[in-house]
Amino acid sequence: MLELPPPLLTLDGVSHGPRTLHDASLSLYPGEVLCLVGKSGAGKSTLLRIAAGLLPPGKGRALLPGGVSLYELPEQVLVSLRRRRFGFVAQDAGDTLDMAASAAANIAQPLFDNGERHFGRALAAARRWFAALDLDAARLGDRPGVFSGGMRQRLQIARALVHGPEILFLDEPTNGLDTAAQARLLTLLSDLQRCTGVAMLLVTHDLRIARLIAHRVLVLEAGGVVEEAPPDRLIADPRHPAARDLVAAMI
């Protein structure tokens, strides 16, 4: 029987607020793409933020390998761990990008936050990620405000991956993009995942995105996890009414 490696991150019965999230659990394995799907208000983003070390749960625990409880770590250890081992891509690029700094500085900031003090290495990393994400190297010095929505999302992804995190958290990364830009971004994420082996926890309300990129899907409804399945099985045979609604919405 195939033995799974220990999970990189486990959420064990987490709850938040009176209704937002209750008793939700998940495990994220190395190299896995796990999608959280559900309609608006289902608790997807809250669960993502708890997993990313950004929002302490009211109840339950977030566990790292070795049984380390994320939210029982001293604040500075948590901040440092988050900076080294996690990357975060928000729905709105303005939430993570510094609009007053150049694209290169935005990409390099996680390196400096993690103690990099070498200009040449930081610049080389920014250039490398610019090229990897198909951005024009001549625009390294431009500020994010002059980039298109899709390019800003790619900038966010570069910033989230530049320091080589173990887990990339993505909160509806294709939100607001046209269909072509969505497809390009998902292909890029798929390729990056294969190249870097980074585990991804991705929030979306669109099962088509989950089908393109996920290894496993969790369906959330009214703050709880109601179904878990590989995307193809979920689409072919949704068992919970919430999952059936999502499948119906694909057509």
Binding site: S102, A104, A105, F119, L123, A126, L140, G141, D142
Partner: peptide, 8 residues
């Protein structure tokens, strides 16, 4: 870094 790489 911004000073050395930015367009501004």
């Amino acid at each position: 870094f911004e000073e050395k790489t930015g367009s501004h």
